[in-house]
Amino acid sequence: MSGHVTLPDEQLAEQSSPGGVGVAVPSRGRVVARRFFGSWGGRAGFALLAVMFLAAFAGPLVYPWGYTDKDFTAFLTPPSPSHWFGTLQTGADVFAVTMRGMQKSLVVGLLAALVSTALAAIVGAFAGYFLGWTDRVLMWVADLLLVLPAFLILAVMSPLFAAGQWPLFVVMLALFLWMVTSKVVRGMTLSLKEREFILAARFMGVSPTRIVFRHVIPNLSSLLVVDATLNVSAAILTETGLSYFGFGIQPPDVSLGTLIADGSKTATYAPWTFWFAAGLLIVTVLAVNLIGDALRDAFDPSARRAR
């Protein structure tokens, strides 16, 4: 069936290819980038995320209120020109704390997702490709982490995440997110390993590690991108959940999670304390999903090309 779908592409390429000197071929990264930005979803998602990053990190620089400042003349006031998103019961400015919270959540969510997906891909692919002892040890570790009560451990460790220790938090979050995906990756690697192009690479003398990184993982990219997308949401939500119970990000620092937790108590009569943080969380997840979809198609040469 693919025959008729691709023919127009083929003709297109025929007409647009430059006259036959040299073989100028863009690298895989460039091709993926071009295709990513060629799609509507990719551009929109990327723009959305960029704006949010900009607001989260540059916003506080120009905004008069800091996230620790309290305005003792305005408690729980609705949005106004002096307090864009209104204020909290404590007199803290909602815009300032939301931006601060978004900084943390974006960084924590994206990093934790990337780390966990990368871990899942590498562990799963190595276990599936090499089998034997590598497989047994790696899968034993995965099983162990699966049975450990992640939430409890993170809660117990929460004092360690105090002031400035958020990278540790990211690592811990990631550590509890990768296992299931790595098992899926391992299974897919097992079947991929039998494919002739992997055999061909092996018999060509390509080293096993290189095969894993150049053939196995790229061919699982659809799965991995989807997984990373889901993990961003999962990481942000786990962090939110932990923060809700008072673990996770510790005060005076804030995250979208702590804000939503606090705001939910006042949401009914002071909606601005809740909805700005919740809305931004939704927009973040949406942007990440758009990027994920576009990235998946960009990696997959058989996906319909954006024209």
């Binding site: 071929v25 895989r28 091709v31 494919r195 002739e196 192009f197 055999l199 061909a200 690479a201 018999f203 060509m204 053939h215 790229p218 061919n219 990219s221 990696f299 997959d300 040469p301 058989s302």
Partner: peptide, 16 residues
């Protein structure tokens, strides 16, 4: 060197 049977599966679909 080796040439395999199925020309679809012997070439990595993700590579140019």
């Amino acid at each position: 060197q080796v040439v395999f049977q199925d020309p679809m599966s012997s070439l990595d679909p993700r590579m140019t």
